[in-house]
Amino acid sequence: MSAQQFFFIVTAFVILFSAMMTVLSHKMMHSALWFVLALLGVAVIYALLEASFFAVVQVLVYVGAIAILIIFSVMLTRKAMEDTGSPVNKTWVLSLVIVLLTTVGGFLAFRTWGALKAFPADLLPVHYDIGELGLALVDPERFALPFEVTSILLLAALVGAIYIAFGRKEDNQ
């Protein structure tokens, strides 16, 4: 086992354990902090895939922005959570059955997927250039359209989020 493989396995266990704790923690705050650890582990996986840009963006966007948003909303809604007994709902048995069936189905599909053997065992050195990615995103011949559509989606979502979260006058009394 190479050092890289060992590192991958350790990271994978950290990710899966903290994701599991995210689901099972009774306190929402603990759940949010385990969630941050899982996201950091995913950033390490991106680094192992030699996609350094995405490792940094993962830390900036998820750990920096989304985790802060989630922790803020946990703190803003704290009163409502202290009365709840169990973190899981009444239909958890059915949910567990669905997840187990999905696991079995996915495992069977994975086992019988012949194309997996066609992938190279030895990787060629990565060709990675941030400048090229940036130019491709604004090149009309390449990805300018998806890029612009994505930015309009982000703008609309943020305007909508501000509108929804903004308190209306009749609520303030």
Binding site: T22, V23, M28, S31, A32, I70, S73, V74, T77, M81, T84, S86, P87, V88, N89, T91, W92, S95, L96, I98, V99
Partner: peptide, 9 residues
């Protein structure tokens, strides 16, 4: 998604 009662979860 399936088992959490809390919407943030």
């Amino acid at each position: 998604v399936l088992i959490r009662r809390n919407a943030i979860g």
